[in-house]
């Protein structure tokens, strides 16, 4: 049936397709030092592997630690369904020629296996396809420079073109100061892309994780049709320390935390990490196309 030539052609075609198609998510292989981690919530020592198995949620007190983007994607997306979305971005642009910035980016790239602070994949959640962008706070606090802004905009545009729902996991200290006003303009860029996506009827679910502050909070983080947040995540425009210095009074307990934002009307639901996949699957199910036609 298949001549060796045909087989070879098929192999080449498959390789070509693989090159052009979104790549599967690569697991991170980094050196893992101490075998125990002190919980930021209760202080108990947790075996590193156990914490990873619980997706960085403390088994004793339920504190949510930051979750690296690749682990987040593997937690969320149905097994074998995830493909990372390649982004056409000039990673490592340095508009201010800020001393040490390029070196820092190169180092973080080696350390995290990421190109910058956001990783996007296309995959299924509970059998339903979606575009999922995840920010990674290991990368300069998940700050938004031109690469992050561009990656988010391209994820939005991909979702629009493929008519897929979009989910963005936010985790960011804000705009990337090392890129100056260029980083500021990424707020306009991402917000404009989402407005267009929304006008075309796209579903965008924002998931705010610890921390979501500054320029990211004041752009794509706050533009979801549905907004979810992880427990106790810090969410706000100005940092609590700056506010305290400005107004000269102590801030109330739980100020700018996810639950506080839910109480003040800016978050639909605070969802613990272990229920996120089920909640997102439910939301995707509720937004299946067809609506009236299926009555």
């Amino acid at each position: 049936m298949h001549s060796p030539f045909q087989q070879r052609r098929q192999l080449f075609d498959a390789l070509k397709e693989k090159r052009n198609k979104p790549q599967p998510v690569q697991p991170v292989t980094s050196a893992q030092p101490a075998p125990f981690v002190a919980c930021a919530g209760c202080g108990k020592a947790i075996p590193r592997q156990q914490l990873a198995d619980y997706f960085q949620v403390c088994p004793f007190c339920g504190h949510h630690h930051p979750l690296p983007a690749p682990a987040r994607l593997s937690m969320l997306l149905d097994e074998g369904s995830a493909k990372t979305l390649p982004v056409k971005v000039c990673f490592g642009s340095d508009p201010l020629k800020f001393q040490g910035y390029s070196e820092k980016l190169a180092l973080l790239r080696r350390k995290t296996g990421l190109n910058d602070a956001v990783l996007t994949a296309v995959g299924k959640i509970g059998g339903r396809k979606a575009v999922v962008s995840v920010m990674d706070s290991r990368f300069l606090m998940g700050s938004m420079g031109s690469a992050v802004g561009e990656a988010i905009a391209q994820a939005v545009e991909y979702a629009a073109k493929a008519k897929l729902p979009l989910i963005i996991f936010c985790a960011s200290g804000g705009a990337r100061m090392q890129e100056g006003a260029v980083s500021l303009m990424q707020m306009a860029k991402t917000s404009a892309a989402l407005k267009k996506f929304s006008d075309e009827g796209g579903l965008y679910i924002a998931v705010l994780t610890h921390p979501t502050t500054g320029g990211v909070s004041a752009s794509f983080a706050m533009l979801g049709d549905i907004t979810l947040a992880e427990p106790k995540a810090l969410i706000g425009f100005a940092g609590p320390r700056v506010i305290q210095q400005t107004i000269g009074e102590t801030l109330p307990e739980g100020f700018q935390r996810a639950e506080y934002l839910q109480d003040h009307g800016f978050v639909d639901s605070v969802v613990p990490r272990n229920q996120l996949k089920a909640t997102l699957a439910q939301l995707l199910k509720l937004h299946t196309k067809g609506g009236m036609a299926k009555c």
Partner: peptide, 16 residues
């Protein structure tokens, strides 16, 4: 950067 500003959604208002 104020308490009420944050409570009433400074980030949301700018993003919008």
């Amino acid at each position: 950067p104020g308490k009420e500003a944050e409570e009433r959604g400074q980030a949301e208002a700018i993003a919008r």
